[in-house]
Design a protein around this nucleic acid. Structure first.
Lengths: 337, 337
DNA sequence: TTGAAAGCGATACCAA
DNA sequence: TTGGTATCGCTTTCAA
């Protein structure tokens, strides 16, 4: 009202000083009231004045200023995957976020698309996160971990297949998945087993250990079978199937398994008589196909569990560089094996 | 070496002052060198000294301090969905992130799990993002938009089904999807059409407009069919199917469609003779079933496109409150209709 | 070509 | 019970 000329000049963001001015108190008082400081007694009328002023101005504290002053943040950095990770991991991630928020952390998913490990680590470090939970998209080197720690990270947790020096190596070992699948097939009498390796980028951190896990099982010969997630690729693989001399296949996960199984059947092969097919992840969709898809059911840690581990690591930053296997896998036989 | 007693006291994070000290220059010079300031000429030897010192200390600038000083951030906030959004939207999101990063924005996905619109808006505002792209998980009120704008957001973009006052209402109208599906079924002679409405929370912003879209098509009677994403729920719906008197169903998306189609077939109904089924999203898996699933193929805007829209809005914060339809949908007939 | 110093916004210590 | 003020790390203007 008082200012008639108001060009699209963005109105200045209200600060705590503005609140103080409006309430007729000092900035210190504003801070005390808004943060419910217990060490200081503020009269009820003053509290109300301050709150009303804050409300009226639509005051929102400036996170950067606050953490600058505090010397630390409550940010937990969650590097975002750029590959579709499937419903299983999505659900886990959501649970994790929720649990972390309950513990009063600010979860920031940071997409690291197209960044190298070094670039990513630097970019993350700029935010001064108190913890980083790297789920494997980017392989952190010991040097990267050091960068993060030097920037104040009290916990760096990797979930990739391998431990990293200096990190709280929380191993979710995907090789177990491959091992269960192969063992399942071997139990059923199969000896020549193909293992699908997705050609899509970014899945190596899952596919490599799954393949290695299968290889670790005694009693079978393992062949790696590169395949892309497309009908063409599956058809091409199916077309040369008879020449491969395989009697079973672990198809990386349920999605690749469904694709390949369809291609094999279209090629005139019988499942499971001519070739047994097993996937992984126990997707609901796998039960809709005929034959129903056998799978490896994967049990991830609960988000709560991991969140508490993080919280503990943050509070007691003793070098708890321990290997922990938080994943479990079990084969489920349906009709395709 | 010089300090023998080193308790687990976290080493202090190196600052630009430390770099300056080590390089034997002032903090100003450090800043100039590290930011490649063009307005100032710094001698090559000095540059090298500074860079070496920064390298040696593993110096990483403090994002909070920087943006505090600058008075603004380059953060684009992307509220994270807590529902599995499927490969289609995942791919779109990734592309968007990538494009924004190319434009030098810091993309921060902020999980808003369990927050109300007000709480979420406040939490986001604390980060002082320069732009917010809300994809619909949380319905932003005009008040929320105002909060964000007051906190310095120069662009607030909503992708929900409805425009929001004050926001750059970028409408990705899901009703088009429902309309296409219904029209497809009507074209094929169906008159009594069921529309599946997922019971899962968080999908309303997609499912409601899809239902409304179907209702908008002339020539058919539309029934809403609540259903959860589980075999039990699908079976229950299928069990009472004959009593519903429907001759076709638009099953929200391909996943629900596959589930329901299987249940219907298990119930002895023929697809498409007794009941036509159409999904949406054109998932690869839908082509693997028999009959192959008809679907509505959805064309999302490219990430590049949206990123540039955001960038323009940020640079010219004129109130471009315009409705834009960036989504297109087309029915694809396979075998289930 | 380089340095000294102000100031961004919030907090917490020390006085009053 | 409340206020003044130093401080966090960084950028940038003004002087030297």
């Amino acid at each position: 009202m008082s200012q008639s000329s108001k060009p699209p000049q963005p109105a200045p963001v209200p600060t705590s000083a503005d609140v103080a001015r409006l309430a007729g108190v000092s900035r210190a008082t504003v801070s005390y009231v808004l943060n419910n400081a217990e060490a200081v007694r503020i009269s009820e009328p003053t509290r109300r004045k301050v709150r009303r002023a804050a409300e009226e101005l639509g005051y929102v504290p400036h996170a950067a200023a606050r953490s600058l002053r505090a010397g630390h943040t409550r940010i937990v950095l969650l590097p975002t995957s750029h590959v579709p990770i499937g419903p299983l991991y999505s659900a886990f991630l959501n649970e994790l976020q929720w649990s972390l928020r309950r513990l009063d952390y600010t979860v920031v998913q940071y997409g690291s698309l197209g960044l190298s490990g070094d670039e990513a680590a630097r970019a993350w470090a700029e935010l001064r996160p108190v913890a980083v939970i790297s789920l494997g998209e980017i392989t952190l080197s010991a040097h990267n971990v050091a960068t993060l720690k030097r920037a104040g990270a009290r916990a760096v947790i990797t979930m990739g297949p391998v431990g990293v020096a200096g990190a709280h190596a929380l191993v979710m070992d995907q090789s177990e998945v491959g091992a269960r699948a192969a063992a399942h097939l071997v139990d059923l009498g199969h000896r020549r087993i193909g293992v699908v390796v997705p050609q899509e980028e970014g899945l190596e951190l899952f596919s490599t250990p799954r393949l290695e896990g299968a290889r670790s099982v005694a009693g079978a010969e393992i062949d790696a079978l590169p395949m892309a997630y497309s009908e063409e690729s599956a058809a091409a693989l199916a077309a040369r199937w008879r020449s491969l001399g395989l009697d079973a296949v672990f198809a990386y996960n349920d999605e690749y398994a469904m694709l390949l199984m369809r291609a094999l059947m279209d090629e005139g092969l019988r499942v499971p008589e001519d070739v047994a097919v097993v996937g992984a992840d126990d997707l609901l969709i796998g039960r809709l196909l005929r034959p129903r898809l056998s799978t490896v059911q994967i049990e991830l840690p609960t988000g709560d569990h991991l969140a508490e581990l993080v919280d503990r690591a943050v509070r007691e930053p003793g070098e708890i560089t321990q290997r922990q296997d938080l994943i479990s896998a079990v084969a489920v036989r349906r009709e395709s094996t």
